[in-house]
């Protein structure tokens, strides 16, 4: 109940649904992007050291 009181902003039903729809795509992209960044970081460090 307390949480409902705090959420004074109407998030909009359509806006919540859209987030659910795009969640898996943007989530997967975000994970891959971070993975790619880590790979680049690793190789940059690797070549820098060696």
């Amino acid at each position: 109940m307390k949480h409902l009181i705090l959420a004074y902003l109407d998030p909009g039903t359509g806006s919540l649904i859209l987030q659910i729809i795009i969640a898996s795509i943007v989530g997967a992209f975000f994970v891959l992007k971070n993975l790619w960044k880590r790979i680049i970081f690793f190789f940059k460090g690797f070549f820098h050291i060696h």
């Binding site: 898996s24 943007v26 975000f30």
Partner: peptide, 9 residues
């Protein structure tokens, strides 16, 4: 991760 993905997007 999906939440962060939305922010990142």
């Amino acid at each position: 991760n999906s939440f962060l993905g939305i922010i990142d997007s």
